[in-house]
Amino acid sequence: MNEKEVEILEILEENARVPMEVLADMVDLSVEKVEKIIKSLEEKDIILSYSSVINWDKTAGKDGVAAMIDVKVTPKREVGFDEIAERIYRFPEVKAVYLMSGAFDLSVQIEGKTMKEVAFFVSNKLSTLDSVLSTTTHFLLKKYKHDGVIFEPEQKDKRIVVSP
């Protein structure tokens, strides 16, 4: 991985919608060269997807609940935590799975339409898996910042408009 590739990744991570010509100028390469680099990064699964951070609370009719579940599991010989992690992340309602250090093993983020739906997932799908020893569910009350993005940013530039 060279410096230009890292620079392109950093810019895209911040804003995946930056026009290709602008991106090329920013890193001082030609458009063709940048397109080639991005394509190769995609093929290597280094760039996995281009998603948006959306504040659904500001939209009507898309209410839901999210929870973070601390899961204790029994790791298996040969595969460790990977197998149980995979069984969990395959559920479409699961948005994220991380292996953690500390008091529990897996942190599972889940989204559902209602609290009942989330509760049902925990009791009927997650807890019943063989390797799962225990779960602790924390419901998310408000998102302040997600993936480095502040949800209600102060937009105003506090600088005076012209200065020496």
Partner: peptide, 10 residues
């Protein structure tokens, strides 16, 4: 107004 007249960091 878009200001390019500011002499300090953003």
């Amino acid at each position: 107004v878009i200001s390019l007249g500011v002499g300090e960091p953003d």
